Every structure is written in C-alpha cells, then in structure tokens.
Simulated assay, not measured.
Amino acid sequence: MTVMPAPGSHLAKRQSILDTAACVFCREGYGGTNIDMIACEAGVSRQTVYNHHGDKDSLFRAVVHEVTERVNHRVFETLATFPDQPRDLGADLAAFAVRFNKNCIYDRDGKFLRRLVDTEGERYPELFAEWREQGPGKTWAALAARFARLAHAGYLEIEDPDLVARQFLALINADFKVATLLGEMPSDEEIERSSANAVSMFLRAYACRPSGTAAARDKSALKA
C-alpha cells in the first residue's frame, strides 16, 4: 500500500512539485518548460524547486522516474492476472488485454509518458535512458516469460518469446495510437472490441494447431 506524505511536510512539497512539473512538461514539452513556470503553478518559489530537485534537467529526470515507477507498479499488478492456466485462451487473453490497456496504457500516467516519449524522445534521448531500461525493458521481459510458459504448456507455438511479447503489446493498442497522440481517449467499449480483435489476430499467428488424427477429425466435423 502506498503511504501518502503528510500534508505540509518536506515530502509532500517535493511530491507536489513533481506532480506539477509532470503536468507542465506534458503540456509545454521539455523545451517549452522552465523552472519559473513550474514554481508558479506549484505555488512555491523558484529557489524551492532548485532546493528539492536541482535544475530543469534533473527535475525532468525525477518526473520520468516517478511516473515510470507508478506505471511499473500497475504493470506488475496487472501482469499478476495473466492467464497462465487459461480455460478459454482467446477470452482470457482478451480480458487481460483490456485490463492492461485500462490500467497501464490509457491511464493518466501512461498517457503522460507516451506523449513525452513521442514528442521529446528524438530530441532528448538521454533523458529517457532510465525509462527505456526500467519501463518497456522490464515489461517486455516479464510478459515474454509468461508467454513462454503458455508455449511450454502447449497453448502457443512460438520461437522468440521476447518478440511475441512486443508484438502482443503493439497489437492491443494499435487502434488508438494516433488518436491518443491527439488527446483522444478510447471508451471502455472501444478498448474491449479492439482488444478482442487484437487477440484474435495474435492467436491466428501463434495458437497451437491440432495435428494428425485430431486435425483430420476436426476437418471431418466441419464437413459434416
């Protein structure tokens, strides 16, 4: 359980500056943001911001670290619900995809990181070095391990679990990538429909196929 800092404490002020800075960086971009702007919106002095976080570069890194930590917490909470022993592989994976989209991609923090990476990543790649390692890097590895277990159990036919994990994540949010860059957010119904379609496509590529006698029996059943 996350413990909130006491109101008015040193930690509370530090957190308030981080939250304000996140909003300003997201709205103005890294290049368009300055310390005075953040101090004004946080209701503190410029020196207070410097005392807590140093210069703009250090503050930006602190913001990305903080948000990445929050996103990772929700990612691993959601990964704990991955269907390792599915009753219905398609339905269970689709439900997981919906949870992942809602909890980790289309929430406030996920939207913030995605927007900053898309707008600032090329110009300031060094600012996102930690995010690359601690964010997507950890998520891909953890999801790949779960897909490897499904393959070992005979549900999937895959050779490269890391590639499969990246492809799965790309598929489940492909429909809304452009819309979210423009500030639009999908509805629950759109997320559910898109997730089901993505999982259906994913399983056409990787689901185990019946072989031998089972395949012949299935074909006979279809003809009948």
Rank of each mutant, 00 (worst) to 15 (best):
G43K: 06
G90F: 03
Y124V: 08
A170T: 13
R204T: 10
Y30G: 02
N103P: 04
E77L: 13
A148C: 04
G183D: 10
S200G: 14
R209P: 05
E66I: 05
A94P: 03
T139D: 04
A179I: 03
K138V: 02
L113E: 02
N103F: 03
E120G: 03
D92G: 05
Q167T: 15
S58M: 11
M185V: 13
R14V: 00
R193W: 04
I17E: 02
G31C: 08
R123E: 14
D55Y: 06
P83Q: 01
E28T: 09
G31M: 09
L182D: 14
H73G: 14
R87F: 12
D84W: 11
M37S: 13
V67K: 10
N72P: 06
N197V: 05
Y206M: 05
K111E: 15
T68S: 01
P161A: 10
T139S: 04
A39H: 02
D88K: 05
Q15H: 07
A129K: 11
P7W: 06
S211H: 13
W140H: 14
K223G: 04
M37C: 12
A94H: 00
A207S: 07
A97C: 05
E190T: 04
G212Y: 02
A129Y: 09
T48F: 01
A141W: 08
R217I: 12
Y50I: 08
F168D: 06
T139A: 06
I35K: 01
I17S: 05
S16H: 12
P136E: 06
V199R: 02
K177R: 12
D162K: 04
E130N: 15
N51V: 07
F60N: 08
E41D: 09
A22E: 07
V24T: 01
G90K: 10
M201S: 12
A21I: 03
F76P: 02
Q167N: 14
F76N: 03
S220M: 15
E126P: 04
V49N: 07
S220E: 14
